[in-house]
């Protein structure tokens, strides 16, 4: 009974953090801010759900499996966050460089 209440509490709290992550994804202004919401809130949500589910397993191998899934997801989330952020930053820089490159043309007027 107490174990079930603990599971319900932890999983609900985890879901709340997932909702916060999704809300951040929708509300935050740019790619980088959205990554903040996705990496941090979702990682914590996943951790809480994992901790909530652990007392419900019936074998040690299942518990190790759940912990392994948590670890793998942490790793993929951190790596993909870094990749998306790096790609976006490079895109911004190349856009800025293009803007600088095109500016002299726009100042000099259109085709002669």
């Amino acid at each position: 009974m107490i174990v079930n209440i603990y599971t319900i509490f932890m999983v609900s709290l985890g879901c709340l953090f997932f909702i916060a992550g999704t809300l951040g994804l929708l509300r935050f202004p740019d790619v980088f801010c959205r990554l903040h919401a996705l990496t941090k809130s979702d990682n914590l949500g996943l951790g809480l759900i994992t901790l909530g589910l652990l007392p419900q397993v019936d074998s040690v191998s299942m518990a190790i499996k759940i912990l392994l899934i948590w670890a793998l997801l942490l790793l993929t989330s951190a790596t993909s966050c870094h990749l998306v952020a790096r790609h976006e930053r490079r895109r911004q820089l190349s856009e800025q460089a293009e803007g600088l490159h095109n500016n002299p043309h726009s100042e000099g007027g259109n085709e002669p």
């Binding site: 916060a20 809300l23 941090k40 914590l44």
Partner: peptide, 11 residues
């Protein structure tokens, strides 16, 4: 700490 901080901002 990070999850709580971002969640509070989102809400």
């Amino acid at each position: 700490k990070g999850g709580k901080d971002t969640a509070l901002r989102a809400f």
